[in-house]
């Protein structure tokens, strides 16, 4: 009999595995309820058990910050069996969230099959505005980049343009004559532009951009930022692809800059929650984004993000980011102030 992992892999690759998303989701929830003690305790506290959960909407979502609790790892296996530990970004002062994986097959299959499902062009000539994987072994994003390179351009090498010391070197890219795909975080793109090292890419190139805009020294609206990127790299505005992903997830969501929504793979679902009531938002209403990602078999499938969004359908959403109206006001010190390290 096939394992649940194998059934999920077959399903993601297009073979029959589950008759419906709900059945797959219920099987994953049961697996996680049984194998993930911390999640089981939380779900039980919410009155959610395999006996009471019948649809994906009923699966309780865990806040991303719960991945920071070292005493209660959100994993279905003991630490010593972790093949990979991905960590959220942060300074040495921050507590970083950890996402353990005992097996990378679902993670990597989700990246590659998700790419196909999104209809994205194969990145046969990739360049990476990031450190190489060996310099950032706990970065899920860089692992994603490396996975795409291995699959689509296995013969390429020396394409990582930031070294272990954080130095940027685009000289080899400057010699490139063929269309490229430039993979980068928003922060890296800005750094590249600010340091005067941005360069016009060959015609036909496009840019994969990801990561939030937190941490930028300047306040920049995403639209204004993309205008700058488009101009600095001579890439048409509609050839900028934004990826929405996070360390706590295995599956990315994509939107070209001309599109108004990020779209996920068939093994994902999204819902938008009104945080005031905890209920699902009405159509068109802004709320907090929750994601159910069945490729997250080893940890928790349902994740509550801290991003605002509007649900478009079961697998797509319009991302709004953080609520600008809720920036800290007044003189009371609050949780947000911790971020400023004041």
């Amino acid at each position: 009999m096939k394992t649940l992992r194998q059934r999920l892999l077959d399903w993601m690759r297009g073979s029959s595995g589950f008759p419906s998303f709900d059945e797959a989701a219920s099987a994953v929830f049961q697996h996680q309820f049984e194998g993930n003690a911390a999640y089981r305790a939380y779900a039980t506290a919410l009155g959610k058990t395999p006996a009471t959960v019948g649809t994906w909407q009923q699966i309780p979502a865990v806040p991303t910050d719960a991945f920071k609790f070292r005493n209660f790892p959100l994993a279905c296996f003991p630490r010593e069996q972790a093949l990979k530990v991905f960590r959220t970004s942060g300074t040495t002062r921050d507590i970083r969230g950890e996402h353990w994986m005992s097996d990378l097959s679902l993670y990597e299959t989700s990246i590659l099959e998700g790419w196909q499902h999104a209809g994205l062009p194969a990145p046969v000539n990739p360049w990476f505005l990031s450190p190489p994987p060996q310099e950032a072994p706990d970065s899920s994003l860089i692992h994603m980049f490396a996975t795409l390179q291995r699959h689509h351009a296995p013969e390429t090498s020396g394409r990582w343009m930031i070294d272990g010391e954080g130095r940027l070197n685009v000289s080899k890219l400057a010699d490139e004559g063929r269309p490229v795909v430039l993979f980068a975080t928003a922060v890296a793109l800005l750094r590249c532009m600010e340091s005067g090292k941005s360069l016009p890419l060959p015609s036909g190139s496009w840019i994969f951009e990801t990561g939030g805009y937190k941490g930028l020294k300047v306040t920049l609206e995403p639209e204004a930022f993309r205008d700058q990127v488009s101009e600095a790299f001579a890439v048409p505005r509609d050839k900028l692809l934004n990826e929405y992903g996070m360390t706590e997830l295995s599956s990315p969501f994509y939107a070209w800059s001309s599109e108004d929504r990020h779209q996920g793979s068939p093994w994902t679902r999204i819902r938008v929650i009104d945080p005031e009531t905890g209920l699902e938002c009405e159509p068109g209403q802004i709320g907090y984004l929750e994601i159910v990602d069945l490729a997250n078999l080893d940890s928790v499938a349902a994740i509550r993000t801290q991003d605002l969004a509007i649900a478009r359908d079961e697998r797509s959403f319009t991302l709004l980011g953080r609520d600008p109206g809720a920036l800290p006001r007044g003189c009371s010190r609050r949780s947000d102030d911790l971020l400023s390290h004041s």
Partner: peptide, 23 residues
């Protein structure tokens, strides 16, 4: 109250619930 303010409270509640549930 803004959405992010509600969200911050809701998030803090869930983290407390998570810790309590885990002993």
């Amino acid at each position: 109250i803004g959405l992010s303010d509600s969200g911050a409270i809701s998030n803090a509640r869930e983290l407390a619930r998570f810790r309590a549930a885990n002993g």
